[in-house]
Simulated scan of single mutants.
Amino acid sequence: MAIAASTAASRALARGKSFLGYRETPARSNRTRFGKQYGWDGVAWCVIFVWCILQDTGTSGGVIKTASTGAMERWAKTVGRTVTTPRAGDLIILRNSKGATIHTEFVYSYSGGRLLGLGGNTSGGAGSVADGGTVAINDRTSLWKRGRIRFVRPFYGVTTDDVRTAQKAAGITATGTIDAATVAGVKLLQTAAGLTADGFPGPTTMSALALGTGGGGASVAKPVTSSKLAVDGVFGVASAKALEGRLGLKQDGVLDAADIKAWQRHEGTFVDGVIDGQVKAIDTAFPAIKDSVIKRGGGGSNLLRAVQRNLSVKPVDGYGGADLAKAMQRAINTNPGAFKKRG
């Protein structure tokens, strides 16, 4: 379910900042953990960095999936998300002296006329360095004053599941990506529900869709498939909430140490609140698991190995890829007793 935009923006900046100093390896290769997560490594990764951070922090549906600065800006124009006055969490679209888009990063802060950016594939300088190979904070004040910067505001706090739910309610093909038709459809739903018609499928709008009524008491179509998880191999917020519900936990869509402990108890494995071992593809297949509970090492995870065994997923190797995520999503959709809290 959608969360407050300000909360999601703060989470994104904190997550992005946690990677300060991270460098592509080897140098000048454009090879990064972010490229692997995105599914296209070895290419310019400033926009990829932004996409990964948003995926990790509850805004998987808030922008399009692209590695192009120009495509990101064009998308923002079609959905009305370009802004002139920046605020923390907005995206900087940086141009070269000829006007071509060359770099994208987060607005880290804007205060007293000073603009700081936080981005990947840069170098921490004040100039228009767009291929610096690291995650850094950059002073963009001069470039902004020279007219070289535009701003994009993501739909913060909106997941791909939220977008699909809104699209189904509006009678639009459920792609999970917000486009102009989605914004128009959401505005109609908001108007029918007596809500502010801004086209933003945020917490208030999504709550109205979930309840079938809006703030004004008007009826809102509730998608008949809203209870089903997308079997897409990405165990994100919606999937995590479903798992938390089965385990009798608070459904916040983030699998932290307490959730992992409950899951370990359920599966009958050692209880320490940590996903142990070198968990292959965990950042892509299980983005709902907090990085702080993943302990990197040799071998696969005992917990995931137990889940593979219980769901007949082979090989039973403890690596948490898309195959395991899909099996869990299918089990939640088809078996009411799957992962059910044990007495």
Rank of each mutant, 00 (worst) to 15 (best):
R153I: 00
L195C: 11
R246W: 06
R164M: 13
N138K: 07
N302I: 08
S239H: 10
S312E: 14
G113F: 03
T204V: 14
G99E: 07
P154Y: 00
D198N: 13
R305Q: 15
V163W: 02
V313I: 14
T104I: 05
L211C: 07
T66S: 15
S109M: 03
G318M: 13
D232F: 10
G199K: 07
G202K: 04
G216F: 06
G268A: 10
G99M: 08
Q251E: 15
D272Q: 10
R330W: 09
P315N: 12
K36W: 05
S6Y: 00
T7P: 00
V83K: 01
N333G: 12
P26D: 09
E244V: 09
Q264V: 09
I102S: 05
T84L: 04
G185Y: 03
L116E: 05
G321Y: 07
A240N: 10
G215C: 03
T134C: 08
T134K: 13
A71F: 08
T269H: 02
M206K: 02
A9R: 14
R246G: 11
V231A: 10
L247E: 12
D276F: 01
V307W: 05
S68T: 15
V43I: 15
A136T: 04
V152M: 07
G42N: 04
K65W: 11
K17M: 01
A100E: 13
K241A: 13
S10D: 14
A281M: 13
A5R: 12
N302P: 14
G171M: 07
S123P: 08
G112T: 08
D317H: 11
R11G: 15
G212V: 04
D283Q: 14
G217L: 10
Y156Q: 02
A327M: 03
N121W: 01
L20D: 03
V135N: 01
L115S: 04
L54F: 12
A322L: 02
T334Y: 12
Q55M: 13
T85D: 12
R81Y: 08
G171K: 06
L115R: 01
G99F: 02
A322G: 09
E73W: 14
D131K: 00
G337N: 15
I149P: 02
V183W: 03
E267V: 01
V107E: 03
V316F: 09
D56N: 10
K340W: 01
N310D: 14
Y110M: 06
K326P: 07
A288D: 10
L195G: 10
R28W: 07
R342M: 13
Q278L: 12
M72L: 15
S128D: 11
H103G: 04
T225Y: 04
K280N: 11
A136K: 04
L91H: 09
A76H: 05
A180P: 05
D232N: 15
D291P: 05
Q278S: 14
G217K: 08
D252A: 08
T196K: 13
T334R: 14
L304N: 08
D317V: 12
A325D: 02
T59A: 07
S6M: 01
V220D: 04
Q278G: 15
T334F: 10
N335V: 13
K228Y: 13
A238D: 12
W45C: 05
A181V: 06
R28H: 11
P223H: 09
M72K: 12
T175S: 15
T141W: 03
D41E: 08
I3V: 14
G297Y: 05
T32H: 04
